[in-house]
Amino acid sequence: MSMTSESPNGDSKPQGKEIALVDDDRNILTTVSIALQAEGFVTRLYSDGETALKALLQNPPDLAVFDIKMPKMDGMELLSRVRAQSDLPVIFLTSKDDEADEEAGLELGADDYIAKPFSLRLLIARIRAILRRKEPVERVPGEEALPSETGHASLTRGRLFMDPARHHVRWDDKPVSLTVTEFLILEALAARPGVIKSRNQLMDAAYPDDVFVDDRTVDSHIKRMRRKFRVVDDTFSAIDTLYGAGYSFTDG
């Protein structure tokens, strides 16, 4: 069963960003939906993964929030199937202190996770942060972008090419599909090849809104990025681990 909150004027493409909520707990669906609508979002509600899957692929929202433990199709399987066809930003709702859920969700390609019970304010902050990272950069026609460490100009480092405005990544001219969070971590590393970035620095790059994440989150993103690059180049070794210090990018 699905429930959708449309825009007041009935437009098929509402002005507010669309957030899909998938959870078998009706109380959570209702509470989160009301909070998001109060912040200007449009919500689409689904009480099971099977119903959500078809809708999310046929008419993708701007972002989705999945509960993990659901009947018929749990959040892990739902994310796996979505990720096979889409780079839709996804936040997982996990059980409190369940590290296995958090790790598995990130490995499958979730952009973030929040442990239950959670703060609505925190969830909204993370949704806004991820949507901001996904926004394309608008420029005045004819105006050249200025490169910067966090900038929006294209970035070439050896065999790596990154275009932040279009969220494109290529390695040896082969496309690599990264989540928004993975992209920002890689951009922070590639901006200054050879410079060691601590986990805290990478978290600041990927989570600029003072959202708390722990060390294993960054490690999981790095591990998953390496696997993605090794699909197109099984010798990929451009992201170095400096044990006790952090990570660096080698463009040689």
Rank of each mutant, 00 (worst) to 15 (best):
T150K: 13
T150I: 04
G151A: 01
A153N: 04
S154L: 09
L155R: 15
L155Y: 13
T156V: 02
R157G: 12
R157D: 12
G158T: 06
L160D: 05
L160N: 02
F161C: 10
F161V: 13
F161H: 15
M162P: 11
D163Q: 11
D163S: 09
H167D: 08
H168I: 15
D172E: 07
D172M: 08
D172C: 09
D173T: 08
K174D: 04
P175Q: 07
P175S: 06
V176Y: 01
S177V: 05
L178N: 07
L178Y: 10
T179P: 13
T179H: 12
T179N: 10
V180C: 05
T181P: 00
T181M: 00
T181D: 00
E182T: 01
L184Q: 15
E187C: 11
L189G: 00
L189H: 01
A191D: 09
R192Q: 14
R192W: 09
R192K: 14
P193G: 04
G194K: 12
V195K: 13
I196Y: 00
K197D: 10
K197H: 12
N200D: 09
N200G: 10
Q201S: 01
L202G: 00
M203K: 10
M203G: 08
D204K: 15
A206Q: 01
P208T: 12
D210G: 07
V211A: 14
V211Q: 15
F212V: 15
F212H: 14
V213T: 04
D215S: 15
D215M: 13
R216S: 02
T217Y: 08
S220E: 10
S220Q: 11
S220N: 09
S220G: 08
